[in-house]
Design a protein around this nucleic acid. Structure first.
Lengths: 242, 242
DNA sequence: TCTGGCTCTTGATCCAGGTCAAATCGCGCC
DNA sequence: GGCGCGATTTGACCTGGATCAAGAGCCAGA
């Protein structure tokens, strides 16, 4: 019954028809036969904020696409110090091919909806479809670019610049118009203050003080702790370092 | 004349016969015909420390394999603050497929020897050979793992832990026996104090003080600023955080 | 509406690492 | 060997962000 609409939709599984991952994500590499095969063993699921998707050192037996929400990838030192090393938005692919164990923790930062497949199914398709591997390579390169951008932020920016850079990162994800496009952006932060601190290598107190300062200087306004309005993006950019 | 020994070496170009990149690097994905084709337009070169290989924002028209030495990838803020975002050792592949401009600077940290090819030649082969793309994907995933490890170091470790982690990183590259293998390691640092500081997000003074402390505590010994001996690796590991 | 338990903010103080300023070292060159 | 110069170390001091400690805001459930 998943396939009810085959004739009308070129054999694409219902599950996939409106899926963003099929357009911009890795599933775009697959033809309808492959999608049908994959859909048989794939399952959509919804996850609460804070739920752990993949534990560090844990053996991973499935990969996923992020369909909605934000997933944080973290690393933790033995004494509990934690660092967020990546944020995944829809329609990112979640998983580390060619390695059975994960080197990071993956955890839902917001409500997250996922489409997961058995590891083996993906790996079989990777062998068949160079296009799938190409998509994975492109996503991995994108993540590497982002990680390196963030290394500059972690290593060399001040607390004020870090917080401004973080807000810009989120703003750009919410509204990916050109950097100099719209002046005003408004969005809900997908992360708690603790998460933001773990992303920026700061404490929650410092993050909070920097938010207060940005608000006092009229660069942003904040409602209910989570809802942010950036009046003029350029003023935030001026504070982000670059 | 590059091909003089064809009959004796299954048609592999002289240039490639003893090349590490053919064994552990991306060229391992190519058959002898492809190597011959690539060798026609490839050239080996030697670079002095400090020489810039690829400028930030610069249009890149060639890719390379690192055959020897260490290449540092850096990012710089407009006011000059710099961060090293990656170190490439032989036989790493140097270049960013699918993007015409580099987002990082690449610079020789030591004497470096490279084998470079025109961008177009590689991209043509990537389309033909899924195996080449697979190798690139594996290397990119490895670099992403390394970048994320380093993000934890940059964001959450103390200066003392950062320096210890750096020494371990180099030691492991020089002597990649199992972590608990040999007790004593000795090597030359491929980076100056300035480079180390830029890698760790510290100042050169702080790096120097931490070296002095490690030496005073008998964890390492230093000759001529560059030559390091780690008597017992575990003592260094104990100081690296984890 | 009140209450308990969060998350977040604010204030006071401390200290790791930055900054500024001299030595000192290592090394190529005359 | 002596000189010059950049790289490194060392010392004295300062400060940005951490730490410690209260408050204040924001629900959810009774």
């Amino acid at each position: 019954m998943n396939l009810r609409q085959d004739v009308h939709n070129a054999g694409i599984p219902v599950l996939c028809q409106a899926c963003e991952a099929r357009h911009r994500g890795v599933c775009g590499a697959l033809d309808s036969d492959q999608l049908v095969a994959l859909a048989k063993s794939s399952s959509k699921q919804t996850i609460q904020p804070g739920a752990e998707l993949v534990g560090d050192m844990e053996t991973v037996d499935h990969y996923s696409n992020v369909l909605a929400g934000v997933v944080k990838l973290t690393k933790t030192l033995s004494d509990g110090r934690q660092q967020i090393v990546g944020l995944q938005f829809a329609p990112d692919f979640l998983g580390r091919p060619f390695k059975s164990e994960s080197a990071v923790n993956a955890e839902a930062a917001t409500n997250v909806s996922l489409c997961s497949f058995p590891k083996a199914a993906i790996e079989r398709m990777m062998k068949q479809s160079p296009e799938l591997e190409n998509r994975l390579l492109r996503q991995t390169l994108k993540e590497l670019d982002e990680a390196r951008d963030w290394m500059l932020t972690l290593g060399r920016k001040t607390a004020a610049e870090k917080v401004a850079s973080f807000l810009l990162l989120i703003a750009n994800h919410i509204d990916p118009t050109l950097d100099d496009g719209e002046e005003t952006v408004t969005f809900d932060l997908p992360l708690t203050r603790t998460d933001i601190a773990d992303f920026l290598g700061l404490t929650i107190e410092t993050v909070s003080r920097q938010f207060t300062k940005l608000r006092a200087d009229g660069v942003i306004s904040i409602e209910n702790n989570r809802h942010i309005t950036v009046a003029r993006r350029e003023r935030l950019e001026a504070r982000a370092g670059h």
